[in-house]
Design a protein around this nucleic acid. Structure first.
Lengths: 217, 217
DNA sequence: CATCCACGGCCAAAATGCGTACCATAACCG
DNA sequence: CGGTTATGGTACGCATTTTGGCCGTGGATG
């Protein structure tokens, strides 16, 4: 589990960060001032720190010095878009910066980028005898690559991330295709079938009659 | 017990929310304007808030700021299907949104999803010697899986969530089948009977003559 | 104790869900 | 522009589930 520390004195912003990151599958802790942040960094370990520049007490730049000694990557958050601040932040070793108000999706993209550069992003899933590399988008069984189409791959990923959970056709459609589930078509069944045959999961993906499908490892 | 706050100035809507959620096994409190909602949030604790955007006094977006500081997940209810509003809501940290008029079943599904993401939903029920896993949709007695059909499973869940409560055939039909209870069919009796035999609850589900059934642990 | 009516049990018919084959169209790629 | 691949729609048949009919049983009521 990737652990992220969000440091911002504006609680709504900090909370927004926490919720957005939690939803993206990260574990996120909040700190509301520099001292609290320093304490947390001291006591616990983090893979990434989102750091507001303007903080009461110790400001972001000061805190940065301390963080650098721990070797934890930092994304600066700044309300100022003054070039000097951004330059200063980057020169002090920040991996990236975001100007508030920021777009959540953009933030997630940058977070992912930083984590990837630091090799802290789980890019390889091993499920049911398959090796799924989410970076190269390649699936292998015993080192041999299995070519999949995009839909098949997304479907596979959905199952791989939900081992043991029943996925209704509704859920599957919403996740892979997006939008409303069109009754009276066989699209989902069709792709589930193609996918499970291709990757050799014929016996692992059980159809739960009247409910959906479940991957059992 | 999961506690949900429903905030909507249209009383019929608020009432619909309360009844639907109560029947699904949640404890639901209603507030009819922003001030009342803020008071309740201040004084009591909630696991989830359903929030109408258009409110007299404080509007939903304003209230959202306050709620976020409490860290309570929110599902927005909006009559507008303007994309800007939905995006605004989500960017403000709402977990999900529903466009009015909404389908009750869809609402329940989303409520369940949000609660699950926040780890506030019990995914495993232990009732009457059975272990019911609502994620994998598996029922076990002493580690041994008992295969159930969809109706049997839904029926079982209804009883498991209402231990000691008399469920009229009317209620059962509405919950499991949906719609009006058609007099002059044996459907409910039949399924109750088959279900209780399959899971070994022959002695636990008592028939309350002329009323319905009650599960006694 | 007799009567009535709700309930339980069984069977077969009806409805529904699912897998598969086949085909049409769209996207992709030289 | 022609060929290939990906995607999704329709038709059909099999499997499973669900339901209605019928009759027997047994609790409630006076």
């Amino acid at each position: 589990m990737v652990r992220i520390l969000a440091v911002d004195d504006e609680r709504p912003i900090a909370e927004l960060l926490r919720v957005s990151l939690a939803r993206a599958g990260y574990q996120c802790i909040c700190a509301y001032d520099g001292v609290e942040a320093a304490d947390l960094i001291e006591k616990e370990t983090f893979d990434l720190i989102l750091l507001d520049i303007m903080l009461p007490g110790i400001d972001g730049f000061e805190l940065m010095d301390y963080i650098r000694s721990k070797g934890i990557p930092v994304i600066f958050l700044t309300a100022k878009n003054a070039v000097s601040d951004r330059v200063k932040g980057l020169r002090m070793g920040a991996e990236d910066y975001m100007v508030k108000p920021f777009d959540v999706l953009e933030l997630l993209a940058r977070v992912e980028g930083v984590l990837r550069r630091h090799g802290k992003l789980q890019t390889v899933l091993n499920v049911g005898g398959l090796e799924i590399n989410t970076l190269s988008i390649k699936v292998r069984r015993g080192g041999v690559e299995i070519p999949l189409t995009r839909k098949e791959y997304e479907l596979l990923l959905l199952f791989a991330r939900n081992v043991g959970v029943v996925l209704t056709k509704n859920t599957i459609y919403e996740q892979v295709w997006g939008g409303e589930y069109p009754e009276s078509t066989r699209t989902v069944e069709l792709h589930v079938q193609r996918m499970k045959r291709k990757v050799g999961w014929d016996d692992k993906i059980k159809t739960v009659y009247g409910m959906g499908y479940r991957l059992e490892v």
